[in-house]
């Protein structure tokens, strides 16, 4: 491809992204320059656009945290909810309107600590909601406190001498709880991210995409890991891009970040479908 063609392609792509933003009402955004949240937002836009979804039928639901600000900036239906409880609100939306595409945007603090209970139960029910979990290993919005994914020994404002706690592995947790589509990627791997987002949105059942992201402002600074680009380089070097199917090699013992589709189960029934079947059978006067 010629340079001119590439440039034209890039221009086209940014035009697509601009179509789905609310630039005149909600910008400038509150994210720090170089934040991974913007990368995730544009990837989600590209995925939704490529899938040809009607934007008015897409509902973004979020709780509290930097990542949870995303529905403010993106021009879809948006529901802002309490800290950690986006999935509970989203379950209500999906149950009452199963025809809508419901996407939850959350972070590691929001979904794995205060909202951990809602995450595992949404996974267990296998309700058709896509959850984008942006994991930056720290609470960014409130100023850099330890989160449930902060690695052992890592520094946060509430662990100024290093964390003594064991972190959660979000994808393992979701798998154990019964989610039927689970994938991991990083903000460096945008092509992979686009594809995983599309697959997750198309998947019938509960899908989780964990995106490893950079909080250079707090996590990077407190742990002397450098600026946004240094963290992106770290993701580039540490990620093992596997994406070959569901039998991934778990090479985290080598300090690697396995990315790709971690688990896919197309057999398990989805909650709204099951519930409709129950309603139909009872309406006919027959027990389910």
């Amino acid at each position: 491809m010629s340079i001119a063609a590439k440039e034209a392609g890039a221009r086209q792509e940014s035009d697509v992204v601009l179509r789905y933003l609310r630039p005149h009402v909600k910008f400038p955004n509150m994210w720090c320059p170089g934040c991974g949240n913007g990368v995730v937002a544009t990837s989600l836009i590209r995925a939704i656009d490529k899938l040809g979804l009607d934007r008015d039928n897409v509902v973004l639901v979020s709780g509290i945290g930097c990542s949870s600000r995303m529905p403010v900036y993106l021009d879809f239906q948006a529901l802002h909810t309490t800290h950690g409880r986006a999935l509970a609100f989203a379950t209500g939306v999906k149950f009452s309107r199963p025809d809508l595409k419901v996407i939850v945007i959350t972070g590691d603090g929001d979904s794995l600590s205060i909202g951990g209970n809602h995450l595992i139960h949404a996974c267990r029910r296998n309700i058709d909601i896509t959850t984008i979990l942006i994991n930056n290993y720290i609470y960014g919005m409130t100023g850099g406190q330890i989160s449930p994914t902060t690695p052992p020994g890592a520094h946060a404002t509430t662990t100024p001498y290093g964390s003594a706690e064991k972190p959660f592995e979000a994808c393992d947790l979701a798998k154990g709880a019964g989610a039927t589509f689970i994938a991991r990627t990083t903000v460096y791997h945008t092509t992979q991210m686009d594809r995983l987002m599309m697959e997750a949105i198309q998947h019938k059942g509960f899908s989780l995409v964990e995106v490893i992201s950079n909080c250079h402002t707090y996590y990077g600074r407190l742990n002397r890991l450098g600026q946004a680009t240094a963290l992106l380089r770290m993701f580039q070097e540490k990620a093992s891009v596997q994406d070959k199917g569901t039998n991934m090699v778990d090479d985290r013992t080598k300090d690697m970040i396995p990315t790709g589709i971690i688990h896919r189960d197309s057999e398990k029934t989805e909650l709204c479908d099951e519930y409709q079947k129950l309603i139909d059978s009872l309406a006919k006067g027959k027990p389910a």
């Binding site: 800290h83 609470y139 919005m141 409130t142 100023g143 404002t157």
Partner: peptide, 20 residues
Amino acid sequence: AYPITPQSPVTETLSHYVES
């Protein structure tokens, strides 16, 4: 404690006192 604006600096300061 759990982080929330505008309380968070209270517990950050205390965690510093404890860990130092």
